[in-house]
Design a protein around this nucleic acid. Sequence first.
DNA 1: GAATGGACTTGAACAAATTACG
DNA 2: CGTAATTTGTTCAAGTCCATTC
Length: 586
Amino acid sequence: MTQILSIQNILKKASFSTDMKESQRVMWEEERYTDGSKWRFLEHKGPVFAPPYEPLPDKVRFYYDGKPMKLSAPAEEVATFFAKMLDHEYTTKDIFRKNFFKDWRKEMTSEEKSKITDLNKCNFSDMNEYFKAQSEARKQMSKEEKQKIKEENERLLQEYGFCIMDNHKERIGNFRIEPPGLFRGRGDHPKMGMLKRRIRPEDIIINCSKDSKHPKPPPGTKWKEVRHDNKVTWLASWTENIQGSIKYIMLNPSSRIKGEKDWQKYETARRLKKCVDRIRNQYRDDWKSKEMRIRQRAVALYFIDKLALRAGNEKEEGETADTVGCCSLRVEHIKLYPKMDDQEYVVEFDFLGKDSIRYYNRIPVEKRVFKNLQLFLENKQPEDDLFDRLNTSILNKHLQELMDGLTAKVFRTYNASITLQQQLKELTSDDSIPAKILSYNRANRAVAILCNHQRAPPKTFEKSMQNLQTKIDEKQNQLSAARKQLKAAKADHKASHDDKSKKAVEVKRKAVQRIEEQLMKLQVQATDREENKQIALGTSKLNYLDPRISVAWCKKCDVPIEKIYNKTQREKFAWAIDMAEKDYEF
DNA sequence: GAATGGACTTGAACAAATTACG
DNA sequence: CGTAATTTGTTCAAGTCCATTC
């Protein structure tokens, strides 16, 4: 309770606002509650369901064992899910095929079931061609047809894409129900290929306020339930059939409820900044503890702090891909090197983290940490837990005692934001705007590397790099040509000393200058792109970097905010754009 | 405490829209 | 102007963390 109250007080003091009028801002402040409720009034139109299945035209055939076969509608629908994915690597994977086939058979009639017994004898290529042709046809549609679709989408957005929460019209994040399809788990997921069933109104729980106009279910259907729970922020939910977890319809990041939460997150990280030295001293001390659980806790916290690792909750074995975070690291995920090249006490990490993204890092650690790790590894098998006396619950309980509201993920936020701030200070030159933006991207990149935000190198990367290089070469040729011309013009002017030739010199000088700038811009672009090959900047920008740092930097360096944040990002960070001055310190 | 459920944030992949280019 | 490259937006899976129950 004290925690909630203190947050409320912070909210009140800091005049949280976007581009609202003063009167509205006061209203916002009055709308914040101390009892854990999230809203007083909530009205919306309910979700938009996936369009019903449209059977294939008869000419599109499915072949079993070389012979055409007409499928019942339910079996055909599931078959189309597979047919659409034929070019995808998924359909070559054993688990995917096995899971798909098992679930597909459940949708078959008994005749189909007895006939179709081997997926390898199924030929979906005709269906696959059909869908390719369809999407090609969609691309070839006339301007008018495309415009019509766009207008229909816009109408749907206007009708279902917004809700009223308290006194504001807010954008909904995901108002469409997920369509049925084949589950695409990441990495080695044991459930990949399973059928994600179609969601019906009878599966949906609606959440809205009692005194609002309740959303109407589609004709002839009913909601599973209509409830009025203002302790939560979601508008609708349903239970998904793959993991049995709940999915939600929630508001867009631009909404008050998400913005305030985001702001709180950064305020918590700033509070960590004030006491991080104390906490670091504490865990360094704990490396010497006579209790094993405390040493483990302290080493794990060191990793979370230094390497920005995720907490690492336990996962149910066999239900998901085998991935780990800090607390769930196993012996097989680290290697210890007392000496490596010219460094001492090197730890090599190699494991699959969230989304089965590989984390690989070699890092020298302090001797005490190294000795502790050796101790933790004693008498263990590769598949044993590295921190056998620790889990995220224990760790977070400890962190809560060190600072109000502190959890493992706050370190990620804190280290990301503080790194951006430091890097911006270090890297920013008083150069041209493109050079400043390169500096910003480099600072952003340092954070993305810290957080291990990777992306698959774009398919066309090599080619686009080459194209850019060609352009640079061309520009260089242009430049030397322009310089020659300038020289000639100067000589001409020296000879004639007339106004006309003087003007010509000026014109040529300008031309050289322009080309130099263009060349510079291209070179900067090439550097930026090369450095960004496998790094994804978006995730840290959206989730880890206190936007006020970026806003302040833009103001200080005279960089228009539009160069850093696009429209959506400006909407999400409206509160920060409004709040931060050029001297803002994280 | 361990297991489970629930709510919410984070994350890469993919699709659509927009911009750059020949 | 049409096409290709790039950026922006959407999707939905996969985490974190907290509350509840036994």
